[in-house]
Design a protein around this nucleic acid. Structure first.
Length: 358
DNA sequence: AATATTTGACCATC
DNA sequence: GATGGTCAAATATT
């Protein structure tokens, strides 16, 4: 029924992504000549990467073998056999499904979440923009809570099947504090593409040493929004790390492959921060090279140059406390003027240098 | 069963 | 018409 539909859809998406990756790779072959546009190559490469990351994301979600991923929607748990032929899940027999050991963990740990507490100052409130576009789909008075909880999903759910959602709620104690809980990963290309152009720009500057080369080029909308939303001096704090292995080293879709596990260990903050976002610069070993194009999520961008602490919460999530401590006005974007283009390059080489703010 | 989350229809605004 | 909010009902979770 509903779940079946969902899974069929995911399989379609998976096939589509893989097919697209294949087609893009074919296209790339036509641009292999040195005379061909490097930019086009870069573009194709990053598109291919994205396609595969998205496909992997779907697979992880579906297969989710023990420890590998606990980011499994409950909707996937109840009728695993309804997967079509060829699907990884079709390998799982009915008996397996009845074996509690197989799915027990998933039952108790439904979805992975990321929580963000946003201490917004006056004037920013719930409209605080995290760079993604959301559509509100519900609101509910929560028992014991003073303020209602708003439910949002990614605008690109329909078009790109992005399953990310978030909940926004004012903190009981402090109405000026917003508690934002993120659920699911963004698989939409919105952020990726916005960020890519900027990353490309930066990479070029770095490689050529020409600071002005692409300055005019792209000021990604996302980073501008971020500067608007978070620019008023965000603060994020880290607190109670969950002890569950899966949560400390969450598996993740996007360019998580770029993080070597050992490096993740060294930077739990970064690893968890990037969980759900793009961890391109999470690893201390991650170098930033022109042909190493990666997406930068708005969250990351916001973290560059702005003190951010992130909070891993008990609910297998990541929390982020963002505060606008002082007078906050609805300053226009330009007032903050923050964008990747304005960042010093060393920020990328020393992720930890900007990650914390004690 | 109670509560939380999502859906889907409807409406408003640009 | 595209986009996004509201709200009751349906569904999922605890």
């Amino acid at each position: 029924m509903e779940k079946r539909k969902n899974m069929e859809w995911e399989q379609k998406t998976l096939t589509s992504e893989l097919t697209q990756g294949k087609e893009l790779a074919k296209q790339l072959m036509n641009y292999l000549h040195p005379s061909a546009s490097q930019e086009k190559r870069d573009f194709l490469i990053s598109k291919i990467l994205f396609s595969y990351e998205k496909a992997l994301s779907l697979l992880k979600r579906d297969v989710g073998s023990d420890g590998e991923s606990n980011h499994i929607p409950n909707t996937m748990l109840e009728s695993p056999t309804s997967f079509g032929n060829g699907s990884p899940m079709s390998e799982i027999s009915d008996q397996d499904c009845k074996n509690k050991n197989v799915f027990k963990k998933r039952k108790t740990m439904p979805r992975w979440t990321e929580e963000v507490k946003v201490f917004s100052g006056t004037g920013l409130d719930g409209s605080l923009d995290d760079g993604y576009s959301w559509r509100k789909y519900g609101q509910k008075d929560i028992l014991g809570a003073t303020y209602p909880r708003g439910y949002y999903r990614c605008t690109h759910r329909g078009t790109q099947g992005c399953l990310a959602t978030k909940q926004v709620q004012k903190a009981d104690a402090d109405p000026s504090t917003m508690v934002v809980t993120y659920r699911g990963e963004h698989t939409c290309s919105q952020v990726l593409q916005l960020a890519r152009s900027s990353a490309l720009s930066l990479a070029k500057q770095a490689s050529t040493g020409n600071q002005n080369a692409t300055r005019e080029a792209e000021k990604p909308k996302a980073s501008q929004e971020m500067s608007f939303g978070f620019g008023a001096g965000l603060r994020v704090k880290t607190e109670d790390l969950d002890t569950r292995e899966d949560d400390i080293f969450p598996s993740f879709s996007f360019p998580s492959t770029l993080i070597e596990p050992e490096n993740v260990g060294d930077h739990i903050f970064c690893a968890t921060l990037m969980d759900g976002y793009s961890p391109a610069f999470a690893s201390p070993a991650a170098t930033f090279e022109p042909d190493y194009l990666q997406a930068v999520s708005p969250c990351q961008m916001s973290s560059f140059g702005l003190g951010l602490d992130y909070v891993q919460t008990s609910e297998s999530g990541l929390s982020e406390i963002i505060s606008a401590p002082t007078s906050v006005t609805n300053s226009p974007i330009g007032d903050f003027g923050f964008s990747l283009d304005d960042l010093d390059f060393h920020h990328f080489e020393n992720p930890e240098s900007f990650a914390y703010e004690s």
